[in-house]
Nucleic acid binder design. Structure first.
Lengths: 125, 125
DNA sequence: ATAGGTGCAAATGTTTTGCTGTCAA
DNA sequence: TTGACAGCAAAACATTTGCACCTAT
């Protein structure tokens, strides 16, 4: 494990949010200014393959990375774009029942208005 | 409605598949060789906004376009990448119940091995 | 010394956009 | 005739990759 990889991992582990590669890069540069974007992407890919972090993919948005590697679901705020974990059970069996065929997996992103944005809207009106 | 837009729409309407912009472009060029990729994208965007076609977005794959505009779900074959409609009911209420909060919408793509690929695998072994 | 990782820059794939000219209403 | 749209090329955006160099074993 190189210095760079350790820094990238620490950034992800310390963050309460689900960060994009760009955000991780900016944080990592605070610690090691010479680190390159390519190195961040390369290590994120390797760490994802190794199961050390979880890559969250959503249509039309940059990937985000999660320190919690057990499979779980996410929602995205339609106002601010922030991504959060949500406590929803695995739907594979349900989908197989509805579909009547084996399911290899699925992508699910729930669109919501997050608490912060809801509070803001309430105070604004 | 311009000649180009009519052609693009016809290509989508006549196809049994869910085509990418690239595929639509290739088909359209058979009819009007001077048509430009930008024109295809521009019209796909306009037609999507107008509700004339449905844009199917999936992480890491090019968008696909569906002549069936009523909201419904799709699956993607993990072998060949082909996209199909699937008959699954709307999950909004279920998600809201599980989440205990309002849901603005959601993206769901089910990963499967399609019939064609399943048949191929069966005959191969 | 050597296998692998780094930094840099260029390429990738998809999609959008600026601009100038053209066309259909 | 004029506003919308075409064609073209360049830019945008997220991400990957080739390559020469470096660095820990």
């Amino acid at each position: 494990m190189t210095q760079q990889r350790r820094i990238i991992y620490d950034v992800i582990r310390k963050s309460k949010r689900h960060m994009t590669a760009e955000q991780i890069y900016r944080e990592a540069r605070q610690i090691l200014p010479s680190i390159a974007m390519g190195t961040v992407y390369r290590n994120l890919g390797l760490m994802t393959e190794a199961g050390e972090v979880l890559r969250i993919e959503m249509p039309g948005r940059p990937d985000r990375f999660d320190k919690t590697v057990v499979p779980h679901h996410h929602c995205v705020c339609v106002r601010c774009g922030e991504v959060y974990d949500i406590p929803i059970p695995d739907l594979t069996e349900r989908l197989e029942k509805m579909l009547g065929a084996p399911v290899e997996g699925y992508d699910l992103t729930v669109h919501v208005v997050c608490d912060a944005c809801r509070a803001m809207e309430k105070s604004a009106q």
